[in-house]
């Protein structure tokens, strides 16, 4: 705890010094934005023989649980390597990378967001699709509105919460609506899957549209309802090594760990489907 505090103090001091330098030379170039804002986790390697290396992975929030598990295994297999994760909304992660945040690997929750990173020449090589995810209707455990299928979400008086169209899960919801030919009038368009889940879990909303994996990880307060129209919006998760990666070989190895059999098994366990 104490070392953490000291680290923050040191970082802030460096930022302030940068501020001074900036003021002194009147430069207008923006400094490096670190991966603050997203929740970072670091798993310390206890190996001592190999030289210490750090691998930073930016990944969509829905990947947190399986990725941490795969990260642990990766560290065991690579003595001296520490894997640091920054989980967050895919768009936000890409925005941070555009601002120059240092990272080795990026895994997003849809291809459109990854395309942005590709367009900005952040990616080395071609992104690899590694899992897919589909939408599921999430309702409180007692399903007070009696939801059985997608059409029920348009019933008047039913409080439905969706992701905002600007975020990947919202885009997926929109395309499902389009292909099903229905128009859901949500009472709220949330920022992230977590917010949708929260509104349903607390009973404020009668139903929401989230990913299968989110329902699987949400516990017993909510339950998921499959619906056939979900096929029209299968979300492909791509992963890629970043150009800025200081250790390109290690980055590629991590991508392989994700696409490899062991990594896929962990992801399948968490509810993800094959790409």
């Amino acid at each position: 705890m104490k070392t953490q505090t000291i680290r923050y103090a040191v970082r802030s001091s460096i930022a302030l010094t940068g501020l001074l330098a900036l003021a002194a030379c009147g430069g207008s170039d923006s400094g490096d934005a670190t991966g603050s804002g997203a929740n970072s986790t670091a798993t310390q390697s206890n190996s001592s023989s190999a030289p210490a290396r750090t691998l930073t992975v930016f990944a969509a929030a829905s990947l947190q649980k399986p990725f941490e598990e795969i990260g642990d295994a990766f560290e065991k297999a690579h003595p001296g390597v520490t894997v640091k994760f920054s989980f967050g909304g895919s768009s936000g992660l890409v925005a941070q990378l555009q601002e120059g945040a240092p990272a080795h690997v990026l895994a997003t929750a849809n291809e459109a967001t990854m395309d942005k990173a590709v367009a900005d020449s952040l990616i080395s090589g071609t992104p690899t699709p590694f899992v897919s995810n589909t939408l599921q209707i999430v309702v409180p455990q007692d399903n007070p509105a009696g939801i059985t299928g997608l059409a029920d979400l348009t019933k008047s008086g039913t409080k439905v919460v969706l992701c905002a169209p600007a975020v990947p899960c919202g885009a997926a919801s929109t395309s499902v609506e389009k292909s099903a030919g229905i128009d859901i009038k949500p009472v709220s368009e949330e920022q992230s899957v977590t917010d949708v889940l929260g509104k349903v879990r607390s009973g404020e909303a009668d139903a929401g549209l989230v990913y299968v994996t989110d329902v699987a990880g949400a516990g017993t307060e909510v339950k998921g309802i499959d619906f056939p129209e979900a096929k029209s919006a299968i979300n492909i998760y791509p992963i890629a090594a970043l150009k800025s990666a200081t250790d390109a070989a290690l980055a590629t190895e991590f991508v392989s760990a994700i696409t490899g059999a062991d990594g896929q098994a962990v992801l399948r366990e968490a509810g993800f489907a094959a790409p």
Partner: peptide, 22 residues
């Protein structure tokens, strides 16, 4: 309150959302 244009999405919520979109 949630976030819905014209009903509950105030300026700060709109800004936060636009960070993702635009």
């Amino acid at each position: 309150a949630g976030s819905l244009q014209g009903t509950t999405r105030t300026l700060p919520l709109e800004i936060y959302l636009q960070r993702e979109g635009d």
